[in-house]
Design a protein around this nucleic acid. Structure first.
Lengths: 231, 231, 231, 231
DNA sequence: TATGAATGAGCCTTCATTCAT
DNA sequence: CATGAATGAAGGCTCATTCAT
């Protein structure tokens, strides 16, 4: 099931990447900077390069090469290296986090729902591509604060909000006994990735953790959470 | 008490920074690259610049200016930009993490000991200087993996090891009921900084959290941990 | 005639230098590092600067200025200062020595052939451009031995080989009586430029010797050689 | 005999180097820049460094280290790197060429005298130290023309003058039949080192030629000369 | 419109020279 | 007077950005 999840996310991403919006096919030529397929192509190349090198060490030439597009073209679609990077973040955030959330919508058992959601979230958050993206964004946080803040707020934090709503529902229903639901939600979110998040970020865990490890970590985290807060 | 802790750490740091100067006043001149005050001066300038810009975007000229030392002098003390940065990491790691640990050595109540230690740790980890350092190191993890790995392993991980030993002791003594002490230790460490670590890293929390917030978070985290694992 | 000779060599060089431009006018743009005119422009600027300053004292900025090309462009055409210099050597060696050699192919009188060849050789070897090139290459011999060795072996030494073959032919034919043809060839080569080579190299002769002087020197050298070795 | 010659030259050199002029021993201290032993020490260090690296690539720090003298001290004795180098050239020129010449003063057979002198000259000119010095001086000829010119005129050229006088004497005595004694002298000088000088300079002959080779080359050169010019 | 050659500011680093000790 | 730490201009090289084609 977990692997189903993973491949789900993966295929989602793939399809999102290829979902070249059918735009303006009336005539052959598109206005400058208007061809979504080309935009997509640039973003993909940029993603590969930024992920591998970080923002500063990535060169526009690398991106040019990787994207198979000329430099001039990139500058038609994006005003600067910086803007390209920000757009890239927005783009992938959408794709990666967008569809995790319906795991929470199941009406079933609270524990199962949390485990399912936690597994999906942990899988994404510890994946190579997301770890790299987070590194880049964090590395640049001092100089471009809005970027990393946005990254967090539109990404992880949205999941947080959904979780919190679910938890609140159970608190209201008397299933959970929590005073500070905000803090409790943070705790749960951190328990999902205990020992994985930091180590991945700092490069002490070289590969994305296996589904087995993720599931074990998430399950243990959920159980800690419930033992602490279940009425 | 918590504020005592903070100022303790802070003053420790300050004293560590200054404990360096009264050296070798027997004769006027110090050997090249041997004046600890100058070395300190460079490290401080470098710290400011690296913290603000990240590794790549920081220029040796900026550091020169910020440190008030000529470029040649920097290169007498440090072989390269990279080495300067690594030494900087080592230097502050030492200062910042060194003295946190004896909070664990108290013989008192487990809960109190954990809260005390957690508060000290969380204070350091969410402080401006350490957050910035972590950002820089994370931002560079892809290209210089050993640096960020070292940073983590010589810093946070050491605290982890001490905590684990304490927890194991209580498991052995029958006070705690834990199967996987490694995972449990990671959980506790993450609970110490729930909702603070990530938000600080991503710039969603602009200032270091107040001691009040830290204490509340740590206490709650310890209680979750103990409820889940106390026999 | 002597002036004819000079201008012959000179015009050869000139034509070689310019024979390059009319290239590939089919389309407007040339690939990066592929425009021979620009390459030539860089080589000429580099030649002026290297000749005047030597390898080390010549700066890429100087060359940039002298060539009227931006620094980036130079680095598209040549990977490094060192490579630029080596290519420069190869380039001019080719141009300068290439066409001297057929002077030896004449079937006529040995004395006339040697004088003709010696005159051509001496003219090149004592010319401003070649003297400067030799100085630069010699000045760098300690640190970049292959460069100066190549310069000698692909330049002067090739002439040497042709001369030696001719001399050997006459020895076999019984016209000359020589035991050590290698040594004899060196002797002849040195006699061609007696009193000119060293003085030019050391800057004791400020201008290239006139054709009159060259011819006189060469003739005398050939006569010494023949008196010593003619059967 | 030739080897006697060599060691004579060598020992001469050694003694010259150590002949610390007995200066001003009345009191302990010498005026700044006045201690000949220290001056000598600097020159020796500079010689080693310049020989190995060439003028530009040699750094004052290298010289400092090699000479075992502080930078300030060097600048007391020599105004600049350039001046240090020029003084070095003067110094060694004196030592190396000074005493070759009395080989010409022998009253014996012309052929023997020439061979003796040629052997001494060729030995010095092709020796490692002199080859290196010549390379450095030549490499710098364009920028510091007087230095290389002086080097030649006060060195080789003086030998030339003596040879020319001897030759003239034999012309006047009717032993030799030479119209242009200047040219003939140059020819003889070049014949002494045929095939050795250029190859040494360009680094195509890695070690100083053996005495056997030198003697053979010189003898052959003298014989060519005499066959051509002996009446 | 798309291209990619050209630009030149700016990077890290070295080193001749100075001057406080 | 000798020392060598400090200086900062200048070195080779890179790369975000522009603009002629």
């Amino acid at each position: 099931m977990s692997s189903t999840k993973t491949s789900h996310v993966a295929s989602m991403k793939a399809s999102a990447l290829e979902a070249v919006q059918p735009v303006d096919e009336r005539q052959g030529r598109l206005a400058a900077g208007q061809d979504p397929a080309k935009r997509q192509q640039i973003l993909e190349g940029a993603n590969r390069v930024f992920s591998q090198m970080g923002f500063d060490a990535a060169s526009m030439n690398d991106i040019t090469r990787e994207a198979g597009v000329s430099k001039g073209t990139i500058y038609v679609y994006f005003d600067s290296k910086e803007e390209l990077f920000m757009e890239l973040c927005n783009h992938y955030r959408e794709i990666l986090f967008a569809d995790i959330y319906h795991a929470l919508e199941s009406d079933g058992d609270l524990r199962d729902a949390l485990i399912e959601f936690g597994t999906a979230l942990a899988t994404v958050v510890t994946s190579d591509v997301v770890v790299r993206a987070q590194r880049v964004v964090i590395g640049v946080a001092e100089r471009m604060p809005s970027m990393s803040r946005d990254f967090y707020e539109r990404g992880p934090k949205r999941g947080q909000a959904l979780m919190r709503a679910l938890i609140q529902k159970h608190v209201d229903a008397g299933t959970l006994d929590i005073e500070d639901t905000e803090l409790a939600t943070y705790q749960l979110a951190d328990l999902f990735v205990s020992g994985m998040f930091k180590r991945r970020l700092f490069g002490c865990m070289n590969e994305a953790p296996s589904q087995e490890i993720i599931r074990k970590t998430v399950t243990s985290g959920v159980d800690v959470f419930l033992k602490a807060y279940k009425r």
